[in-house]
């Protein structure tokens, strides 16, 4: 893929991501918001593909778009909110929120230091492909073995916690 094609694909994906994120937080109907978030996740997966992170793109589609978003949609339909579509989506303090968002974006732009990141070292080509599943698996099960196990503990705690919190107290 040429440089120009890659860049134009990136700018398309970035523009659609930002647009769908804005639409997601401004739609009045929560189900519409979820569908825009789905578009956002799929386009971010495309950005991961452009960055050479194929495994991360697959996990993004499977876990985020496949599992987490379906979970949210399931909850929305389970709760069946009739009043949400009537009122305004934002509270009365929305100008303050927009100011906070703009301030954060301006701060991130200001704090972005190009000298922070060293220029790309000339790694030997075709020996290290950072996105390959083999190198990720090797690092995950050797260098990051302890954080990997701790992640499984976090997921276990989340399962138990969700059941405990959501369980009905007085089951007949």
């Amino acid at each position: 893929m040429g440089i120009l094609a890659g860049q134009s694909a990136f700018y398309y994906l970035a523009a659609v991501s930002v647009a769908s994120a804005i639409l997601a937080i401004t739609r009045r109907n929560p189900v519409h918001s979820m569908l825009w978030v789905l578009a956002l996740f799929v386009h971010v997966a495309g950005i991961f593909l452009l960055l050479g992170a194929e495994f991360l793109a697959a996990v993004q589609v499977i876990v985020y778009a496949g599992a987490i978003l379906v979970f949210y949609l399931f909850f929305l339909m389970l709760l069946d909110l009739p009043v949400e579509a009537a009122g305004p989506p934002f509270g009365a303090h929305w100008p303050l929120c927009a100011a906070a968002g703009l301030a954060f974006a301006a701060f991130a732009w200001y704090a972005h230091d190009p000298g922070l990141v060293p220029a790309m070292q000339p790694v030997e080509p075709a020996t290290r492909s950072p996105g390959s599943l083999r190198s990720i698996g090797m690092a995950l099960f050797t260098q990051f073995a302890l954080p990997f196990e701790i992640t499984s503990l976090i997921l276990l705690a989340a399962i138990v916690g969700a059941v405990v919190v959501a369980k009905r107290k007085n089951v007949p």
């Binding site: 930002v18 937080i25 909850f75 929305l76 974006a105």
Partner: peptide, 21 residues
């Protein structure tokens, strides 16, 4: 792009009233 998406999420978190959103 990351900063813009984070700012959009921040505005949504602070501004929306629906807890799921």
């Amino acid at each position: 792009l990351s900063a813009i998406l984070f700012a959009i999420g921040l505005v949504g978190f602070l501004g929306r009233r629906n807890i799921i959103l």
